[in-house]
Nucleic acid binder design. Structure first.
Lengths: 337, 337
DNA sequence: CTGAAAGCGCTAACAG
DNA sequence: CTGTTAGCGCTTTCAG
């Protein structure tokens, strides 16, 4: 049953041809007679011959594989990015190998190692939360394997990036709240040691100022990026002096945490308190009322990132400075405001 | 900048050692003196040497890569499966290459082709909806590459499978409704040309019978698997003579469609009508009331499938009949019943 | 203890 | 038109 893999030699043996002749025939080389080509090709089909890409890659010192490392595949955002990456990779004849770091820097490093060993053509990474230094990405660069960060990146590594326009997304969200007449707008900020947290907070602050609304430090609660963080952050907010009339949350999970807590306190959204998220997670549109949020287009982000990477792969010598692509956001207005 | 990749020969040249000696040193071969080993290893680290897996694989005729083909990566269920696969693959030293078929048989076949060419160690597939014949999986089997189907499979291909226990999941759901005192239980069935649809419907019917409840054909509506199908199916149900007091939907999207429609008609869940889904989609727990549903454990399914595949890979000669693993379901009781 | 030689499957330059 | 040869980077005998 388990037939050994068919090779050009096998084909040659059966046809009394040298295996190199077979190889040329399969590549439609002009040297070879139509006659021979036909017989080779038909035998190849009959035996289910598939050229060994490993040998080919070894010879050519090239490979048609992209590596992707994400914190967690089973995640709305990242799986959509991967979908986008696979889509353009497939279209350009590349395969995609997917690795998850589980937010663990060491595991990230190990993945970089095996991807390097496998001589992937390029690597896409969204770094683990715990990753501070990017030194484990150096091997890639040493081997001349191009690297593109998406969404989360390392400051200390010079590489292409694709990021969401966090700042403008935040201003859009806050602008909308102001338009709706809210004035006491709170911000459930993520942790500000990530660029995402910093930029969204900056957008919030600037947009309030731009509208002549004073910044009240009491109205900013620093938390994490999860639903639980949202719950806790909202409680903290309530424990302070003055009630907000609207909340801009750093992302949808945090907004959803706040949402749950608001409902639990029997407050009405948006009458008592309006709520805006960031990310347009699938379930945000299913809440009651559905959540106003900022669209991040992860699928598009994956496509853009893969595209950048492939450009690098196809122009290996270009000493172009690293570039940053910014994915435009779009405000999605729903019932929560 | 773009340094050529470092090889054993490079190391050898720098140390005045033959490259085979270097190779042995790196593999901690007893032949080699500690002295030499140390110098080799330290130079390897210094130069950022990473063994070329391609060459290694070519030599050994082995590869440490699993291929996964799913209809769409950007999908709750499949991305969770992939997550599970990657998890166990990683733990056993394997990489995972992910391909999406976009529910297109031809694209599925192309993926099979490149995976075959890349001599992946094994392949996991959930087949595209449009796939009827499985003949494009033959090349794999011809090359002796093991294949495991998960969730969706081809009847005409002899291969290992991992499937959800649809029948018992359905009986659990219906049993629960009966326990709660509902008697007029409707079923929004999917299309019954899939095993999923058939088995869940069979479970529904049998469980009613087992409880002495007569089957009323008016209470079964055949639809598809999407939210829209749920909406339409519920309307159909209402247009018929008698109102159900509970609904068992073939999956969560259909249940959610019904849910929306029920709310639109100003009926109360579960007072006027109870609702059970199947699949435990993320958003089901966020509905108000949250949806009672049957857990499918896609993450676990991924793990089990990868495990089966790796077992085949590690025992290539075992002529064991193909096996079927059934993932047990679990009823998750929430507010909708 | 270290080196030489062969070969994994393929391609490409060169001979016949 | 077809065959020979060499080599991609590595491991694995087998000699020294």
């Amino acid at each position: 049953m388990t037939h050994r893999q068919v090779t050009v030699k096998d084909l040659g043996r059966r046809l009394n041809l040298h295996f190199t002749t077979v190889s040329k025939a399969l590549h439609d080389h002009p040297d070879i007679s139509e006659q021979t080509k036909r017989s080779v090709i038909s035998l190849a089909e009959e035996l289910g011959y598939h050229p060994n890409s490993i040998a080919k890659n070894l010879k050519s010192q090239k490979t048609y594989t992209l590596g992707v490392i994400v914190p967690l595949i089973k995640n709305d955002f990242f799986s959509a990015v991967i979908s986008g990456v696979e889509e353009v990779a497939y279209g350009r004849g590349f395969n995609t190998v997917v690795c998850q770091s589980n937010e663990d820097t060491e595991r990230e490093a190990i993945h970089i190692g095996t991807l390097t060993s496998n001589r992937v053509a390029g690597v896409l990474v969204s770094v683990a939360k715990t990753t501070t230094s990017g030194s484990h990405f150096r091997p890639l660069q040493k081997q001349g394997i191009p690297l593109v960060f998406f969404d989360r990146f390392c400051e200390d590594i010079e590489a292409d990036k694709v990021v969401v326009d966090d700042y403008n997304g935040a201003t859009q969200a806050v602008h909308h709240l102001v338009q709706c007449g809210y004035r006491r707008i709170a911000h459930l900020a993520g942790s500000t040691n990530t660029s995402i947290g910093r930029e969204r907070c900056r957008g919030y602050v600037d947009e309030l100022k731009r509208n002549g609304i004073e910044i009240d430090p009491e109205m900013i609660v620093y938390s994490g990026f999860g639903e639980k963080d949202g719950i806790l952050a909202f409680r903290t907010l309530l424990s302070r002096d003055r009630m907000p009339d609207a909340i801009f949350a750093v992302n949808d999970p945090v907004a959803i945490g706040a949402y749950k807590e608001i409902k639990r306190k029997n407050l009405k959204i948006p009458q008592d308190i309006a709520l805006v998220g960031f990310g347009d997670n699938t379930l945000s549109s299913y809440l009651d009322p559905p959540l106003t949020t900022v669209e991040q287009s992860p699928y598009k982000m994956g496509k853009v990132a893969a595209d950048m990477l492939l450009r690098r792969i196809e122009n290996p010598e270009s000493e172009i400075e690293s570039e940053v692509e910014v994915i435009k956001t779009k405000l999605i207005i729903r019932g929560s405001t």
